[in-house]
């Protein structure tokens, strides 16, 4: 467990932001999932749970997800959606009642299921100071001392198929794949490579231009992305199953399958 001397519920975002800047050892606490695992020595933990950031709003143009919305809320409030589907294997209900969307986004973990899924959608991350940042850029930004307010996903009918391989059902993934389609516009995203999720640009382009079938696009993606090894599998294996899972996801979307954001 991380240690900290103070624990503060700021009354406004500005207070929270100022507090975060006040000391390098101050940190925003999301669900506490990862802090509880670490041994960081913090000065002040900043709890955003009293700032109304725990809501999920479904509008005609956007779905807005507050940073303090829990992964379990995605399942309960967006049933049958892409996000509900992708968080199901994460640890357990009790964990998902803690873990927040903001925490998932800010941590930018390679193995993150929701980050992979959100990257396949038209997602903008909302930051207190920096403003709105497309998720593809956000994921590759160095974590800054800004506050993630949540994300906004276009409710535009884009559908995505989500595929993952896990050694056991509630384990971290060996690989995550989200392929999405809006009309002729395709997007192929691969996470848990084991590095951060990446957009397979070439494969996405081939599909969007109608120049590739599932197999060809999957091969292109496996070719253009890099894969590494960790305890759960080698880079070589990841490359092989990336092809398999991407092809399966594409087939699902060809078959009018796939899930929307809400």
């Amino acid at each position: 467990m991380a240690s900290f001397q103070n624990y503060i519920f700021p009354e406004s975002l500005e207070d929270a932001y100022e507090l975060l800047q006040a000391n390098r050892r101050n940190a925003v606490i999301g669900g506490n999932g990862w802090l509880a695992l670490g041994r960081q020595k913090l000065h002040t933990a900043i709890d955003l749970s009293r700032l109304g950031l725990g809501q999920i709003r479904v509008g005609p143009a956007y779905v807005e997800i507050g940073a303090m919305a829990t992964l379990r809320q995605l399942e309960r409030e967006l049933p049958g959606s892409l996000l509900a589907c992708c968080v199901k294997p994460i640890a357990g209900v009790q964990f998902r009642n803690l873990a927040t969307v903001g925490g998932s986004l800010y941590s930018r973990f390679g193995f993150s299921d929701p980050v992979t899924a959100l990257m396949a959608m038209d997602t903008t991350v909302l930051l207190h100071r920096q403003g709105d940042v497309p998720i593809v850029d956000f994921v590759w930004q160095k974590p800054s001392r800004d506050i993630v307010l949540g994300c906004r996903v276009e409710n535009n009918g884009r559908r995505a198929a989500y595929q993952t391989l896990r050694l056991s059902a509630t384990d971290l993934p060996v690989l995550t794949v989200a392929v999405s389609r809006l009309g002729s516009d395709w997007r192929v995203v691969v996470g848990a490579r084991p590095g951060k999720a990446m957009l397979a640009e070439e494969a996405s382009r081939l599909l969007s231009e109608g120049k590739a079938d599932a197999g060809t696009a999957a091969s292109a993606a496996a070719e253009e992305l890099s894969f590494g090894s960790n305890m759960r599998g080698s880079g070589g294996y990841r490359r092989q199953i990336a092809q398999v899972l991407i092809a399966r996801a594409i087939e699902q979307l060809h078959g009018e399958g796939g899930l929307a954001i809400c």
């Binding site: 467990m1 519920f9 509880a36 709890d47 749970s49 964990f95 009642n97 803690l98």
Partner: peptide
Amino acid sequence: GTENCGLCTVWVDGTPVLSCSYPLPR
């Protein structure tokens, strides 16, 4: 102690959470 076993489950306002990692001040 790593949020994977569920033994420490309690309810906060009726919602089951892991007490090994739930922030106490909350």
